[in-house]
């Protein structure tokens, strides 16, 4: 079906395998398949990341606003080579990582604790509503959920 590929890692054959290899290149950090123009594939990879950053910012507006000018670089560094788990979970995973590094801005901390008080999220399965009352904290920010209502008990320190 196709002309021979130039030398390189044994290229996959068949459309399904070749499409899978290309998507892995674009979103999971796999090498560029043989024969493609590397610069162009890199440009597509960057464009996908930029679009994804915008979608995650829509789901996590306070996290993105809290990072301000650093949002794009922070998201890009975190997301490159990491396939999406959907915008909600991408932002959640990023917020937790920033929290663990002590790099979560106050607005992001407040957004995170409100979400964590309301939902159980184990990092593997989609988040689901908590049935029992719960506290959540990130740094100084503390949120309480009771009977489905969430209150930010203490804001993050500015």
């Amino acid at each position: 079906m196709s002309t021979p590929h130039p030398a390189g890692p044994t290229p996959p054959t068949g459309l399904a395998a070749r499409q899978a290899a290309l998507v892995a290149t674009l979103v999971a950090g796999a090498p560029v398949p043989a024969g493609f123009v590397t610069d162009r594939v890199d440009a597509a990879r960057a464009a996908l990341l930029r679009k994804r950053a915008g979608e995650v910012a829509r789901h996590w507006p306070l996290l993105a606003a809290g990072l301000g000018d650093a949002w794009w670089g922070t998201f890009r560094d975190w997301a490159a080579g990491r396939p999406t788990a959907g915008s909600l979970r991408d932002g959640w995973d990023l917020a937790r990582e920033l929290r663990d590094r002590g790099a979560l801005p106050p607005l992001g901390a407040e957004e995170l604790v409100v979400r964590e008080a309301a939902h159980h999220y184990d990092g593997e399965q989609p988040p689901r509503h908590r049935r029992l009352p719960a506290f959540a904290r990130a740094g100084d920010a503390v949120a309480l959920q009771f009977a489905g209502r969430v209150r930010l008990l203490r804001p993050a320190r500015r």
């Binding site: 459309l15 399904a16 395998a17 499409q19 899978a20 998507v23 892995a24 674009l26 979103v27």
Partner: peptide, 15 residues
């Protein structure tokens, strides 16, 4: 493809 979402529209080989 291959269980991964690209997040955008990708071109086909024109084959």
């Amino acid at each position: 493809a291959g269980g991964l979402e690209a997040g955008h529209l990708l071109p086909l080989p024109r084959t």
